[in-house]
């Protein structure tokens, strides 16, 4: 028996919003420790890694590990049926081929349940080594979304350069070029408004702007986004999901041909 209850169904809606741009379907791996998801987009350029810890749920029970392959389009349709203030419970029997979503209004006067067929998905898990990154940048998530949106008007690629002074985002194309420099915040009153850079060595990497834009669909999950970079390895873009977990996007860089 698997059962996970979340008082804020809006978190689940936001998680889905954050992954459905990149993935059509995904396997939710449920265990005693929580719900994990790892999936690459079709072109194998980016990867989504999400973790929701069991202790972050209002009730959590998972007697046996189960992997639930879900069509994210179908899941979106179902979660649209939940009001933001509803309490959501996901339920599945061991070895089930369906999952049930139960939505309860705060006053318990309306209770709906939606059963969704599960899919058998080929799981292609990648081993991601623990990495010490040369540069770790934290900035307001809304600012990052704005930068990605603004620069994607100029070219298909965004160059991210990180030095100890700050971080620079650049793009160039037919209409011209654009550079956005963010300096490290000198005095931090509010952490969620700060730009911070932890740097071992400077890094410059080039990425496809359309993936960066897709990652920013997670902006509503967190005030802060963290970018981790090292020379010649994939970028990690991380958003925390409240007190319950995180979503990380890995993006392979563009390399010299």
């Amino acid at each position: 028996m698997f059962e996970a209850r979340l008082v804020q169904s809006s978190i689940l809606k936001k998680v889905l919003e954050a992954i459905k741009d990149l993935l059509n379907e995904a396997t939710f791996d449920c265990s005693d420790s929580g719900i994990q998801l790892q999936a690459m987009d079709n072109s194998h350029v980016s990867l989504v890694s999400m973790n929701l810890r069991s202790d972050g749920f209002d009730k959590y029970r998972c007697d046996r590990n189960i992997s639930m392959g879900m069509n994210l389009g179908s899941m979106t349709k179902i979660l649209k049926c939940a009001a933001n203030e509803d309490v959501v419970t996901m339920k599945a029997q061991d070895n089930a081929d369906t999952v049930t979503f139960v939505f309860e209004s705060p006053n318990q006067e309306k209770v709906s349940d939606y059963e969704m067929k599960l899919m058998n998905l080929d799981q292609e898990h990648l081993g991601i080594p623990e990495t010490e990154y040369a540069c770790v940048v934290r900035l307001p998530a809304g600012e990052f979304a704005r930068i990605c949106r603004d620069l994607s008007q100029f070219g298909e690629s965004v160059v991210i350069s990180c030095t100890k002074e700050g971080v620079k985002f650049s793009s160039a194309g037919d209409i011209g070029s654009a550079n956005i420099k963010l300096a490290q915040t000198s005095n931090v009153d509010k952490e969620e408004l700060a730009v911070t850079v932890e740097m071992q060595e400077p890094v410059t990497l080039t990425f496809a702007s359309r993936y960066l834009n897709s990652f920013t669909k997670a902006t509503s999950l967190s005030n802060v986004v963290q970018l981790s970079m090292s020379p010649d390895v994939p970028l990690v873009v991380e958003y925390r999901i409240g007190e319950i977990g995180h979503i990380r996007y890995y993006l392979a860089p563009k390399i010299e041909d």
Partner: peptide
Amino acid sequence: KTKQATLMNFFKKS
């Protein structure tokens, strides 16, 4: 000229 790498260039299947 740059080309898009894939994650398989960096990570192994587990």
